[in-house]
Amino acid sequence: MLPWLTVLLIVLLAYGLYGGLVLAPADYQQGDSFRIIYIHVPSAWMSLFVYVVMAISGAIGLIWHIKLAEIVSISSASIGAAFTFLALITGSLWGKPMWGTWWVWDARLTSELILLFLYLGVIGLYGAIEDKRTAARAVAILALVGVVNIPIIHYSVEWWNTLHQGATVTKFDKPSIHPDMLIPLLVMAVAFKVYYGIALLMRCRNELLQREQNNRWVDEILEKL
């Protein structure tokens, strides 16, 4: 599975980056600096997507006591935190030429920052509890509470408005972005999802081997490597 995904990721990344950085026309207002969108927007999407995956798999683990779901949940946490961090950093780099400042206390930036803290809380809680099965369940409860709260946080933060440009892609009837710019963006979004899949599978494998290290089948697998 992993080699296939890796090939797919390379193809998608190559196409998306080439299309985004070379083929797409420069923006009539923002010039070439808009091109950071090809990293910024996919990672911002992923930051929310990964949180939802984490919460859902956490709930599955909590309800049906499926070990693998717990592992998926906790392995997602640090990947999601990385995406959130990436979205914040690229947004800040984009903000400097566009708004003339690295950071504004704008609604989306602030809720993204709070999302990062939610991820850090999950990671911190998992690290603090010795017994990893208990820890996974604690994290699942926390992630579920977070999922209920994220919309509330988002809309309450949206209240004090904002420098951030409005949504350009999710307006389904007529996106206000040119197709030449849009297609590489969507390809990059898929590439980021594939990357998440790869990273998740690798992390899950490590976590599983670590948890079951006292079993004989782990030794057998490790001897083969």
């Binding site: 709260n149 946080i153 209240w159």
Partner: peptide, 27 residues
């Protein structure tokens, strides 16, 4: 309730709780 069993839950508690307090503070 999540951190009560931990010996050093103090700072962790703050990190868990404060983001969830944001809507109340804003309104």
């Amino acid at each position: 309730a999540l951190t009560v069993g931990l010996r050093k839950g103090g700072v962790l508690l703050a990190i868990l709780v404060l983001p969830l307090y944001v809507p109340v503070l804003i309104f």
